[in-house]
């Protein structure tokens, strides 16, 4: 079985977001870059399938040179090969989906694992777009995955519960927290990864569907007020304020 895992490099969740001088992109100064957390679940799932059923796992990222860190980490964790599709970083989720589809088209992947959303961009779009472009099944926001002979069964998170999706392989599956508990790289893994090379390819030329024309910080919230008195008085004052001032009730 051949598995492709799409990994995106994103700003760490601790990052304070600053807008760059162009007014539409992130100021990269002081940003620490990490693998998008949901993509870690995707990679872990691929490695577990490799360990239990046998599989060849390819880790792929679309991005610049810095995205190699994400791929080196993936190799250390157990991916067999790593591919960097070099793009200009300007594309939207649709552009990324087209690039990955162009790469994966004739490689015979049985399973493509992604995060359910890339932290930061938050589109939750690349997976379903890739599935459509490749003409294969999809299952999103997955907390449990079982593979059969050419089929899959997945549990997907929905409002107020979950649902079971069944479909045919090949498929694009996007991972949610809960799918597994990602491992840490072992020293042995890190050493072994040093001997592996990252294949670097130019991404196919594509047309984006959308672009960011401005990036802004949210407006400051007006200063609030603290409610005084004992617990009963504070509670009384709060409910009254929510009713009369905020008109929430």
């Amino acid at each position: 079985m051949k598995i492709l895992v799409a990994l995106k490099q994103v700003p760490d969740t601790e990052s304070k977001i600053k807008v760059a001088a162009d007014g539409k992109s992130l100021d990269p100064a002081d940003v620490k870059w990490i693998t998008s957390p949901y993509d870690e679940y995707a990679l872990e799932e691929a490695i577990r399938i490799k360990e239990t059923k046998g599989a060849e796992v390819t880790a792929l990222s679309v991005g610049g040179d810095s995205a190699k860190d994400v791929l080196k980490n993936a190799l250390a964790l157990g991916a067999d090969t790593a591919v960097l599709l070099k793009g200009d970083g300007q594309g939207d989720a649709f552009a990324v989906a087209q690039m990955i589809a162009a790469y994966a088209k004739d490689k015979g992947f049985d399973l493509i694992l992604c995060g359910n959303k890339g932290l930061g961009g938050d589109n939750a779009a690349m997976g379903p777009m890739l599935a459509e472009l490749m003409g294969v099944a999809q299952a999103n926001v997955i907390v449990k995955l079982e593979l059969g002979e050419g089929t899959f069964k997945a549990e997907r998170e929905i409002e107020g519960g979950s649902e079971i999706v069944e479909g045919a392989l090949p498929a694009v599956i996007t991972a949610q927290k809960g799918l597994n508990e990602p491992r840490y790289a072992s020293l042995k893994g890190i050493m072994a990864a040093k001997k592996k090379t990252i294949e670097e390819l130019e991404a196919a030329p594509v047309t984006a569907g959308a672009q960011v024309s401005a990036l802004a910080l949210p407006p400051e919230r007006p200063a609030g007020r603290k409610l005084e008195g004992d617990a009963a008085a504070q509670a009384q004052a709060l409910i009254q304020a929510l009713k009369d001032e905020a008109k929430v009730f």
Partner: peptide
Amino acid sequence: AVGKDVAPRAAARLGAGYASD
């Protein structure tokens, strides 16, 4: 859950850009 699942796939089918949420 359904909207976020179906809309990007429909967008790709239409060759369209997509803005989520």
